[in-house]
Write a protein that binds this DNA or RNA. Sequence first.
DNA 1: TCATGTGAAAGGCTTCACAGCT
DNA 2: AGCTGTGAAGCCTTTCACATGA
Lengths: 217, 217
Amino acid sequence: MTKESKIPNPTIERLAFYSRPLEALLKGGPPVISSEKLAGLCGVNPAQVRKDLAYFGEFGVRGVGYEIRDLLKEIKGILATDREWALCIVGMGNLGISLVENENFKKRGYLFVATFDSDARKIGRQLPCGLTIEPERKIGELVRELGIEIGVITTPSRAAQRVTEILSDAGVKAILNFAPIQVRTPESCIVENVDFSVKLENLVYHLERLYKGKRSA
Amino acid sequence: MTKESKIPNPTIERLAFYSRPLEALLKGGPPVISSEKLAGLCGVNPAQVRKDLAYFGEFGVRGVGYEIRDLLKEIKGILATDREWALCIVGMGNLGISLVENENFKKRGYLFVATFDSDARKIGRQLPCGLTIEPERKIGELVRELGIEIGVITTPSRAAQRVTEILSDAGVKAILNFAPIQVRTPESCIVENVDFSVKLENLVYHLERLYKGKRSA
DNA sequence: TCATGTGAAAGGCTTCACAGCT
DNA sequence: AGCTGTGAAGCCTTTCACATGA
């Protein structure tokens, strides 16, 4: 690619962010968009949009803007969302089920191909999406067999570390962890955490400040 | 409070983060913890921990560390999680249900007191937690009646903007949005977004780079 | 003329290193 | 002696402002 020396992490997050309105804009409207307009839709600075994109190449036309279809293709190529990824999920409570059944993932190429739980009462149950809940001891076997690269953890906190180890031993290279705990992984395995409560705590902190009449950003 | 001139946003997120292991440590073990140990548990730099806490006061004892019980109390006071918050949720699909039924929220004082949906087939259904799904037109009435300060959006993207407006008109002051779309709100209403796919896109970007043997942080 | 691409400046956050207490 | 609290340095990210090119 172009120069790609060192890409800021926030840039990667924003690329994913940019792709959302671009997808919507594909379905009608002008075929070209300016950095200013895209920035407006995403709530960021126009220069930010240009700089983010410029890390990876020159996708725009000066005086005109960015061709939406091309831009989206480039972004998907950069993020590697132009291919399908096989995922498994461990912990089939309400949250696990809601993720597996979520159509947004499938649309974006994230395919759940196996589901696991440790609860004997859940094992063997068939889900609406067609998958059957497997026992945790089958993780190693199925990860290898199905070429699963990403594991999703939706277990209670106390099980998260154990499951992380099982997954990384099985060869999973990336983990999306919904348990509100910091899991340790070997170098070979990347983790992203999703913690809803942290977001709520952010909100209530700022709410409280507003109530007290303090100015904050 | 102390000086509190301008608190970095990441500091607030980390405070929530710190509270997780502290809660676990309350149940046994030594009553005091050093910034180094807490930092280790959270995967951050010890100086970061000290600086974060020092924005709000002097909670530690030099040469000793931080009293766990006191520190947790202070953090909860700062984040305003030492009181209960009334929430409502709009969009009772699988994700909505999993949030309402999630015990973690209740434990932290986030109480769902009303649930809404626009689908006539769902309205009137009683949930395991005891709440009944109400029609969206009742949002205004119930928000006022129950003193709801925070709204959670788990609708499809296309409904998210409309619901945001209904909620903010009703007087909700903060919104936690799970729809993968940027919603616009009046100044009086704060938003936090949770987008699972963005996290996955981050993971696959880094995975792809690893496969290609490129070094990245 | 218009909007991109990009050095340079500004701003914000993290880490260092050590003074200050216990 | 040990660990906190904190100015200062360093690093990273964002924003500005304008040269560049359609």
